[in-house]
């Protein structure tokens, strides 16, 4: 099938790319835009490893078509650190509190947690577990992820003061 030209804003940069209608946004991000931080776990909406923020809405990019990004903004894990390389508070706390082991789920968790903290800056443990229930981790047992998100929430709230 003929490739289609898509214009989107990815991590703040306007980009133009070619893709086939059947390619998922996940495939486009990884294979066309070469942003390989976003991971494929299940490819069917269950694990959250592929999470990105599409026009402000947290989505599983494996369940979105690349062509649907036309005219939209996409935020991936690569967009979280500052231009000077400063890590986002979530990236810091995941490192400092060991919220990861093998790391395959981590970009998805961090993007998902970013969306959670934007709508609820000071979530309880229950709210974090519920909010992140679309993200699966086979290694950590989740406790340290929850702590990292709670800590990052505090850092973000203090930074705003």
């Amino acid at each position: 099938m003929a490739k289609v030209i898509v214009n989107a804003v990815v991590n703040g940069e306007p980009v133009e790319f070619f893709c086939e209608p059947r390619q998922s946004l996940l495939e486009v991000i990884r294979d066309v835009l070469l942003l390989t931080g976003t991971k494929e776990g299940c490819n069917d909406g269950n694990c959250g490893a592929c999470n990105v923020i599409l026009d402000g809405v947290l989505v599983d990019s494996c369940c979105v078509l690349g062509v649907e990004a036309q005219g939209k903004t996409v935020e991936t894990i690569e967009g979280l650190a500052g231009t000077d390389g400063d890590l986002h508070p979530l990236q810091r706390t995941f490192l400092d509190l060991t919220g990861l082991q093998c790391g395959i789920c981590t970009p998805g968790f961090i993007v998902s947690a970013k969306a959670l903290l934007e709508s609820n800056p000071n979530p309880s443990e229950h709210e974090i577990r519920l909010g992140l229930s679309g993200n699966l981790c086979r290694c950590t047992g989740y406790d340290k992820i929850v702590l990292a998100v709670q800590e990052a929430g505090k850092m973000l709230t203090e930074a705003k003061r």
Partner: peptide, 9 residues
Amino acid sequence: IGSVQIQGR
């Protein structure tokens, strides 16, 4: 329905 991610779509 599903997760926050699924409900967004």
